[in-house]
């Protein structure tokens, strides 16, 4: 399936279709990140239960230097 992650279209396997699996695939499961799915923030506790489907828009953000 095709996911739009931070504005980029990325092909992702149909079998691994949870947020947690996506983060593992991107090597980000240990990082401090916040995930938004189609405009809704996903709580950390829901990463393993939130299903992804074709065409989903995902934002993955983190803390960067700023004043």
């Amino acid at each position: 399936m095709k996911l739009i992650i931070n504005g980029d279209s990325i092909e992702f396997s149909e079998e691994q279709n949870h947020i947690y699996q996506l983060l593992c695939h991107l090597q980000m499961e240990q990082r401090i990140v916040i995930v938004e799915l189609n405009g809704s923030i996903i709580a950390k506790q829901a990463y393993e239960t939130t299903l992804l489907s074709d065409g989903d828009r995902i934002e993955i953000v983190h803390f960067v230097g700023g004043g």
Partner: peptide, 19 residues
């Protein structure tokens, strides 16, 4: 203080100060 920005998903190993 910190800002919130998109993660570079193509470079997931980039170091992060907060971490």
């Amino acid at each position: 203080t910190f800002a919130i920005r998109r993660m570079n998903v193509f470079e997931p190993t980039q170091p992060n100060f907060l971490e």
